Amino acid sequence: MFETLLSAVAAEAGGLGGPAEIWNSIVRDFSNIGEPGAFAAFVQVLLIDLVLAGDNAIVVGALAAGLPPEQRRKVILLGVLAALVLRVAFALLVTQLLQIVGLILAGGLLLLWVAWRMWRELHHGGESPGSAEIEGDEHSGLKPAKSFAAAAWAVAVADVSMSLDNVLAVAGAAREHPGILIVGLIFAVALMGIAANVIAKYIERYRWIGYGGLIVILWVAGKMIWDGYNDVAPALGWPAVAGA
């Protein structure tokens, strides 16, 4: 099943076929990891995955913080599982959609909103009751939901947004390196399923990690807006940006 899923992600990510093509793409990109473009894409993908996996965990934990322990654990489990499924689903679509003229520009603008939201949380986070299961959500500034249904709905909405943010940012950072893109998508899913709580704790303790991720997302957003503008400019009769 995992091999089939990996094949599907790779096919969408770079027009690749079966496992042999997937492996060849990964080997090709990582054998050239010393090249500036490939190395920069790899570092960007890792930092984006780390920061957004931790951010996802903090939001889910904060929203569930006001519930009784049993309901809180169910909401957090629901949030993690939903994030896993959504990341895979968006991975199957987003890189293909980025081939459509104008959507790279739209994706870059969306990532600017993601960066603003991250800045607000890092710089102006308030106090939250926090949940025993997620370390680091005490200063998220998010108000916990008052019922199981409200918490489940809030987590579902947050997961859709954050999963799209994650996959879009990774795809934008590694569009020219399908092997790195594939590994990044797998890494994102693994982090959400295994280590999101640990990452959330360290992001809260070492704030520079969050600010580093914010800078990377701003860089990716700017590059996508630059490339996206030059994709749509000819069709709209606008002047292309010099140097693109």
Score class of each variant (00 low, 15 high):
Glu121Thr: 02
Ala158Phe: 05
Gly107Ile: 04
Ala233Asp: 12
Val27Ile: 09
Lys74Val: 06
Leu50Tyr: 01
Val220Leu: 10
Asp29Cys: 02
Leu52Val: 09
Glu21Cys: 06
Ala152Asn: 07
Glu176Gln: 12
Ser147Asp: 07
Ile209Gly: 03
Leu86Gln: 10
Gly141Glu: 05
Asn32Ala: 15
Val75Cys: 00
Gly108Asn: 10
Tyr202Gln: 08
Gly61Ser: 13
Met192Gln: 10
Ala8Asn: 13
Ala11Arg: 12
Trp153Pro: 00
Phe30Trp: 12
Leu110Lys: 07
Leu168Ile: 07
Met192Asn: 14
Ala196Gly: 07
Leu52Trp: 02
Leu122Phe: 15
Arg73Pro: 01
Ala11Cys: 05
Arg72Trp: 03
Arg205Pro: 00
Glu3Thr: 08
Tyr206Trp: 13
Gly17Ile: 03
Gly66Thr: 01
Gly108Ile: 01
Leu77Gly: 06
Glu138Phe: 00
Ala190Ser: 14
Tyr202Arg: 09
Gly102Leu: 05
Leu103Asp: 10
Ala171Pro: 02
Ile104Asp: 03
Trp119Glu: 10
Ala188Cys: 12
Ala38Leu: 08
Ile225Trp: 07
Asp137Met: 07
Gly184Ile: 07
Asn230Val: 04
Ala89Cys: 14
Leu105Val: 00
Gly179Val: 02
Ala171His: 05
Ala83Gln: 10
Val216His: 03
Thr95Trp: 05
Val198Arg: 09
Glu133Gln: 12
Glu3Asn: 13
Ala106Arg: 04
Ala8Pro: 00
Arg73Lys: 09
Gly108Val: 06
Val157Asp: 07
Leu181Arg: 08
Val167Gly: 04
Trp153Thr: 04
Val43Pro: 01
Ser31Leu: 09
Glu133Thr: 13
Val232Ser: 06
Leu84Ser: 11
Gly17Asn: 06
Ala156Leu: 13
Gly18Lys: 00
Gly37Thr: 05
Val157Phe: 14
Arg175Glu: 06
Gly66Met: 01
Gly61Ile: 04
Leu185Gln: 09
Ala196Met: 14
Leu81Asn: 06
Leu86Trp: 00
Ala13Glu: 08
Ile199Pro: 04
Gly136Ile: 11
Ala64Ser: 10
Gly126Glu: 15
Glu176Leu: 04
His177Gln: 11
Val157Leu: 15
Ser161Lys: 09
Gly213Val: 15
Ile134Glu: 14
Glu70Asn: 05
Asn24Gln: 13
Glu135Tyr: 01
Trp226Ile: 03
Pro19Leu: 14
Ala169Ile: 05
Pro144Gly: 08
Pro69Asp: 14
Ile48Pro: 13
Val60Phe: 08
